[in-house]
């Protein structure tokens, strides 16, 4: 008989949390600082959650975009339980949301960022912007919507400040009810943490639901979102995500 010391920890699936963060010039000042602090705190909480979570091991990937887009986690998503330090971002440049979507699209694949021995769960993707796109994001959005990881992932958006394009971010996450509009930096910091925590624990929750939760469903579970922060746009005012096609997923499916 092996001794109880000879066994290794239980295999867990990877749950990736992607952050797509606007670091354009307009973020300069208190906003970028609030973002950095929000990320710092969020990562610490997620690290603890991952260590105690028997259902999934959390991995983080951060994409910063301004004039173009760049991965902060250059070597791909990193396990939070291992040594991962968030490096503070600096603001400057344009708001190339389209470039960010293209870059994200190129990495949402089992041959890129989502490959591992254990396999992945549907990712969580959190977007944050404070402005209007300076490039043609619509085409990039049409493309990334063909990506099954994106289409089935849990997507949530933050519109920070008065000047954020709420319609754009609603289109990207596919549902205006999955968007939070905040002008207060302190509230933003708190909600960023709550939203991240709630999304990361979805699998650990006794539920009444049958499906992976949408971003809108996650926000319903997050307490402390003030009414004025909730975005409720008319479907005609933005580009809602088309209803996902019913696909018959199979064990041998290699199209991921």
């Amino acid at each position: 008989m092996p001794t109880t010391n000879e066994l290794t920890d239980m295999p867990r699936k990877d749950l990736h949390i992607f952050y797509v963060l606007d670091t354009s010039g307009s973020m300069e000042g208190t906003k970028i600082s609030a973002l950095n602090h929000a990320m710092d705190e969020t990562i610490e909480v997620l690290r603890t959650i991952s260590k105690q979570n028997g259902d999934a091991r959390l991995k983080i990937a951060v994409l910063s975009f301004n004039t173009g887009a760049e991965w902060i986690t250059k070597n791909g998503p990193e396990y939070l339980e291992e040594h991962f330090e968030y490096e503070y971002l600096e603001a400057g440049g344009l708001t190339d949301m389209g470039a960010a979507l293209d870059e994200l699209n190129s990495k949402l694949s089992q041959h890129e960022f989502l490959g591992s021995m254990m396999g992945a769960l549907m990712p969580v993707i959190i977007f944050m912007t404070d402005g209007y796109a300076t490039d043609n994001y619509e085409e990039a959005l049409d493309n990334i919507r063909q990506n099954r990881w994106f289409a089935r992932g849990t997507k949530i958006g933050f519109a920070l400040g008065e000047d954020a394009d709420v319609k754009m971010i609603s289109s990207i996450v596919g549902n205006s009810e999955a968007v939070i509009r905040v002008t207060d930096n302190e509230l933003f910091r708190r909600l960023m943490r709550f939203v991240s925590v709630t999304s990361s624990m979805v699998r650990s929750r006794s539920s009444t639901a049958d499906n992976a939760p949408t971003g809108a469903e996650i926000l319903q579970q997050v307490e402390g979102i003030p009414e004025e922060a909730k975005v409720r746009l008319d479907k005609d005012d933005y580009n809602p995500e088309p209803k996902a096609q019913e696909e018959d997923d199979d064990w041998g499916d290699d199209k991921w």
Binding site: P11, K13, A120
Partner: peptide, 26 residues
């Protein structure tokens, strides 16, 4: 799980690259 530190239904099939809700149901 207490004996083997594995989930009894999470064998080879659990290792699919993308565990979708539809596959979880299976």
């Amino acid at each position: 799980m207490l004996f083997c530190l594995n989930h009894p239904l999470e064998g080879q099939r659990y290792l699919v690259p993308a565990l979708t809700p539809a596959l979880e149901e299976k």
